[in-house]
Design a binder for these strands. Structure first.
Lengths: 215, 215
DNA sequence: CGAAACGTTGATCGTCATCAATGACGGTGG
DNA sequence: CCACCGTCATTGATGACGATCAACGTTTCG
C-alpha cells in the first residue's frame, strides 16, 4: 500500500519556521520567470511563501520531465548547496509567486546552528526521495491510462492552475497523447464529458486498480 | 550535462565515520536474504561494510522496480526513520554481506550530536534525490535501447555480480525484452557478440547520443 | 568402474501476433 | 490563432509458444 501522494507538495512546518527567522528577504516572481536554470551554479536558496512552481529537467532531445510541483513552504536550491553539483532542474513560477530568499552561506550556517531547521530539512529530503521513488515506480510499471487515472484521483482538477502541457510533462508524454488518454477515460465513463474531475469513488478506483493488476 | 552516475552507489566517507563509532554491531547476511521488507515498520538502520544490496519496490501487479544498488558505506532505513512512514522498498542482499546495525533511537541521537554524521547524511539524501531524478528523467524520455546503452557504458559488466533479472528490473522491463534489446545492440556492433562490455569510446557514445536527440 | 547415453532444467532466441504510444496531417470550432 | 480531435500509419515494447542449447546429474551398459 502506498501512502497518498499530493501532486503539489507543501511544507507548512518549514514555512512557519522560516517566517520566524530574522533577515529573510522577500521577492515576488511573475509566472513564467525562472528561479533556477538547469546546469548553472546555485547561489541562493528559496522558500515559497505563496504560489506554485514547477521543477523540470530538460533532456538533450529537448523533452522536459517535470520532477515536482512545489507549493507553500517548499525549499529550492538546497540539493545543489549540499552536493555542490550544478543545478539539477530548472525551477519556474507557474503562478504569481512570493518567495523568501536566503544566501547559501547563511543557510549552511543555519543548518548547523538551528536544530529544528536541520531536522525539517532532513525530513523534507527523505520525503522527496520516497515520493519520487513511489511515483516513478508507478509510471514505469503501469500503462499511461492507469497512471493518469491515479493522478486525477488525487485532486480536483478545476482548482489546479496547471496547464495541460504541465500535466503532460509530468507524465512524460505529449499533450496530444494526454488528450487521447483523457478521451479513453471519458469513453469508459471514468471522468465526465466536460471537466477532468474523477467520477469514481475510492472503492471503485481500487476495483479498477485490481483489474489492471490481474491482467 | 548530467554528472556521471554509478550504477552501484557507495559512500566511503560515511563508512569511515561509522567504523569509528563505538558500539556498532556487525552482522553477516547471505545473498537473497532481506534486510527490509516493503510496507513493514523499520526498526533498525544498516550501513554496508561489504557487499551489495538491491532496493526494489514491488507493485500490486507483482512487477518489481529496482530503485538502487548499494555498496560500501551506503545507509538503509534512514528514510523511514526520518519520515515515520512504512518501509519504502524491500532491501535484499545480492552478494554475501557485512553490515553495521544500529538502533533507530541511537541513530536519531547521533544525528543530533554528531555534526559530521549529520552533514554526511544530508549530503547523502541530496545525492539520492539528484541521482534518482536524473535516472528517471532518462528512462522516461528515451527509448529502452538508448537507456540500456547508456547503462552499459557505465561499467564493465563482467565484474558485476548482477543477474540479468536484476538488470531488467532496474530498467523496468522483462528479461526477454532485455535480451531482445541486447541483440539489437549487438547487431549494430555496439557491443561484442559474447560479453556485454561496450564497444564504444566516449566520443562515439556521445555521437550516438546526438543521433537519438536529433530524431 | 568409467564412459557413453539419457533426461531434466533453465536460459536464450526465432517467430508471429498484439498492444501501447507516438507522429503527422488535416479539419473543426471557439 | 490556438486548442482539440479524427484518422491513418508507424514505431516501440510486450506476450505467447515453441525450438535450441548448454549444464548437470543420473542411468545404463561395456
Amino acid at each position: 500500500m502506498s501512502q497518498p501522494i499530493n501532486m503539489i507538495r507543501t511544507n507548512q512546518e518549514l514555512l512557519q519556521l522560516i517566517e520566524q527567522l530574522p533577515g529573510m528577504q522577500q521577492h515576488t516572481v511573475k509566472p513564467g520567470q525562472k528561479l533556477f536554470r538547469q546546469d548553472e551554479k546555485a547561489r541562493h536558496l528559496y522558500v515559497i511563501k505563496q504560489g506554485i512552481v514547477k521543477c523540470y529537467i530538460t533532456e538533450e532531445n529537448t523533452k522536459d520531465y517535470i520532477l515536482e510541483f512545489f507549493g507553500e513552504g517548499e525549499v529550492m536550491g538546497e540539493l545543489e548547496l549540499l552536493t555542490g553539483s550544478p543545478i539539477l532542474s530548472t525551477v519556474e513560477a507557474v503562478t504569481e509567486l512570493v518567495v523568501y530568499k536566503a544566501d547559501s552561506a547563511h543557510f549552511l550556517q543555519l543548518l548547523e546552528t538551528n536544530a529544528t531547521l536541520n531536522k525539517l530539512i532532513l525530513k523534507e529530503l527523505a520525503t522527496r526521495v520516497s515520493q519520487l521513488a513511489i511515483r516513478v515506480s508507478y509510471q514505469q510499471l503501469y500503462p499511461i491510462e492507469y497512471t493518469l487515472l491515479k493522478l486525477l484521483s488525487l485532486f480536483s482538477y478545476q482548482e489546479l492552475p496547471l496547464s495541460k502541457k504541465d500535466l503532460a510533462d509530468y507524465l512524460a508524454i505529449t499533450v496530444r497523447s494526454l488528450n487521447r488518454t483523457l478521451k479513453q477515460l471519458r469513453e469508459k465513463n471514468f471522468i465526465p464529458g466536460d471537466g477532468l474531475d474523477i467520477h469514481l469513488s475510492k472503492t471503485e478506483l481500487d476495483k479498477l486498480l485490481k483489474r489492471f493488476d490481474d491482467e
